[in-house]
């Protein structure tokens, strides 16, 4: 068998297998052969704010993805973090929100926008939108031009200004670290979704259940029910990016 032939056969079998696996993962969401998927997250901020000072989601995410803890704010890397109301929802604050939410920060992360500006500007398709809505990163292709960081209106992207490894207290060897010179951000845990697991932050919030993750294309999913029944906000809705992270405020 030639090399090309061999790769062809194995490639096809892998694709078939993956398709079969995908179908089994989403079997619950409908009878169609390949039901549409639109991953989204709903954050119930009331539940989140109840547990003051909790950083379980951040810690879990940063641990499984080997996100370094860099003291110098200029070189900081963060996938999930917290912002005060005014910063998370600029132009939606009133003169009183600061008082209302004093010392109560809101979790923020990549919004996995439906119309992501970062994807539009990337010159190498190193960041792109998957059909199921995930805004992905290909760390093998990123040239480190940081155009995506200029384009993201939410500050969701970080750049590796220095080698991250010396700043990792412990390395989870299952997930690659990054190296200096590439951009990174939350991927909605693409690697865990592929295994049929929920994102690490969602799993870490099991107790509070403030983070709900699911398929918006499925009308019966938890996220669909929540966005239909509760009033939600999205960050900077006027920019037309259509974030897929929804916040229940009241």
């Amino acid at each position: 068998m030639t090399r090309k032939g061999f790769l062809g056969v194995t490639g096809i079998s892998a694709a078939v297998l993956a398709a079969r696996k995908l179908r089994s993962v989403f079997a619950a969401s409908g009878p169609a052969a390949s039901p549409p998927v639109r991953w989204a997250m709903v954050i119930d901020t009331q539940k989140c704010l109840k547990k003051a000072g909790c950083i379980d989601c951040i810690a879990a995410c940063h641990k499984v993805h080997n996100v370094p803890e860099i003291k110098d704010r200029a070189h900081e890397i963060k996938w999930v973090w917290k912002e005060p109301f005014k910063q998370a929802f600029p132009a939606q604050e009133t003169a009183y929100t600061e008082e209302a939410y004093k010392g109560k920060p809101f979790p923020v992360l990549c919004n996995h926008c439906d119309n992501p500006p970062c994807v539009r500007v990337c010159p190498t398709k190193a960041t792109w939108k998957r059909e199921d809505g995930l805004v992905m990163m290909d760390w093998h292709r990123c040239i480190g031009c940081r155009y995506c960081m200029a384009a993201c209106p939410y500050g969701s992207r970080s750049f590796n200004w220095v080698d991250p490894r010396p700043h990792l207290r412990r390395i989870d060897i299952e997930f690659p670290t990054r190296t200096k010179g590439v951009v990174e951000k939350c991927t909605f845990c693409a690697e865990r979704l592929a295994r049929g697991q929920a994102p690490a932050c969602v799993q870490a919030c099991k107790e509070q259940k403030a983070l709900v993750f699911g398929n918006l294309a499925d009308p019966d999913s938890d996220v669909s029910r929540l966005v239909r029944s509760r009033f939600t906000l999205r960050r900077k809705p006027g920019l037309g990016t259509n974030p897929e992270v929804y916040y229940i405020i009241g």
Binding site: T10, A14, A15, L17, A18, M136, H140, E191, A194, R195
Partner: peptide
């Protein structure tokens, strides 16, 4: 396959 096409299992020969 894994990163760009979400194909994360491989069937060997």
């Amino acid at each position: 396959g894994a990163v760009r096409n979400n194909v994360r299992t491989f069937t060997a020969y």
